[in-house]
């Protein structure tokens, strides 16, 4: 079976159309007993937090990315991320934690319970997808390293390596890419660190080897290729907020009632619908209000946008 040569990944060997039914294919292959190493790289459990919406195809998810480290075009991450070295990979965990240090990724992942989380993903540019992430709750790691009582926020940083990330040779953004969450947001069970999608290791253009996914916030909050996690007392600086504070707030919760100054956030275009699919209504907190609305009780979300 040439298709399952272990040194190839699915994306190398799967023809376009087959991506559509990858999950069924993987299940089918497993059932027939010939799932090679390429087909089932990660083992994971399903999650009740998953949406039952139909996921976008692997092709759509991996060829339509905003990852300015590799260029500002949606297809540039796919074209240039291949050169990124993701092994070895270390994550520095510092700030107000009991056990700070440079953690090797493999050590960090030891013992975590991987789950498949099929989440809606809403970009601030008013398009959306549904992505079957593989990951684990951020709280697992935070509990393991021990959060000190004074900590109020979690800050994240992306790798800076201009030799492998050509976009970083230009001052498009103030590198490194930085993001942050309030501690209660970070501890929410919906907030995950993802290490894969569609059952296999994270494609590089999607933020390999480890990225954040916060499904009720605009996509740019879900920082990719993380090398540093810091617990802080003060609200940490965030890249887009630093660039244009009027346009990108610290919270950046999906909110159809608070428009981006340059475009409406009331509706979104679901990627993959073809030419005439039109628009769908955007849901408050991207549809995750039951899980997260209480985090913001008493806050004026038009001010804390």
């Amino acid at each position: 079976m040439r298709r399952f040569r272990p040194d190839l990944t699915w994306s190398d060997v799967t023809p376009k159309a087959a991506f559509l039914n990858r999950r069924q294919l993987i299940a089918g292959a497993a059932a027939l007993g010939f799932a090679g190493p390429a087909a089932a790289k990660l083992s994971y459990a399903p999650s009740s937090y998953s949406t039952d919406a139909e996921p976008n195809t692997f092709e759509q998810i991996t060829r339509y990315n905003n990852f300015y480290e590799f260029g500002t075009g949606k297809d540039e991450p796919m074209a240039y991320a291949g050169q990124l070295t993701t092994d070895p990979w270390a994550v520095k965990i510092d700030g107000l934690v009991e056990k700070p240090g440079d953690y090797d990724l493999a050590d960090l992942l030891k013992g975590v319970a991987l789950e498949e989380r099929i989440y809606r993903f809403r970009c601030v540019e008013a398009w959306s997808m549904v992505v079957p992430w593989i990951g684990f709750e951020l709280s697992e790691i935070l509990e393991r390293v021990g959060v000190q009582p004074g900590a109020k926020y979690v800050a994240f940083e992306t790798l800076v390596r201009p030799e492998e990330m050509p976009g970083q040779n230009y001052p498009i953004l103030d590198w490194p890419y930085r993001e942050g969450l309030r501690l209660d947001e970070a501890m929410n069970p919906l907030t995950i660190l993802a290490t894969g999608l569609y059952g296999e290791e994270m494609p590089k253009q999607n933020g390999a080897p480890i990225r954040l996914v916060v499904p009720w916030k605009y996509g740019f909050k879900s920082i990719k290729s993380i090398v540093r996690i810091s617990l802080t007392e003060a609200q940490p600086p965030c890249t887009w907020n630093m660039l244009q504070p009027r346009e990108y707030g610290f919270y950046s919760n999906v909110n159809p009632e608070v428009d981006h100054p340059r475009w409406s956030q009331a509706t979104e275009r679901r990627i993959g619908g073809g030419l005439f699919a039109g628009r769908e209504l955007t849901l408050m907190f991207n549809g995750y209000g039951d899980e997260v609305a209480s985090l913001y009780a008493g806050q004026d979300l038009t001010k804390d946008f």
Partner: peptide, 15 residues
């Protein structure tokens, strides 16, 4: 091209 998949993942934006 847009109707036959030649414009990538988001043909609406591409056009």
């Amino acid at each position: 091209q847009g109707t036959t998949g030649g414009l990538g993942i988001d043909p609406v934006k591409a056009i």
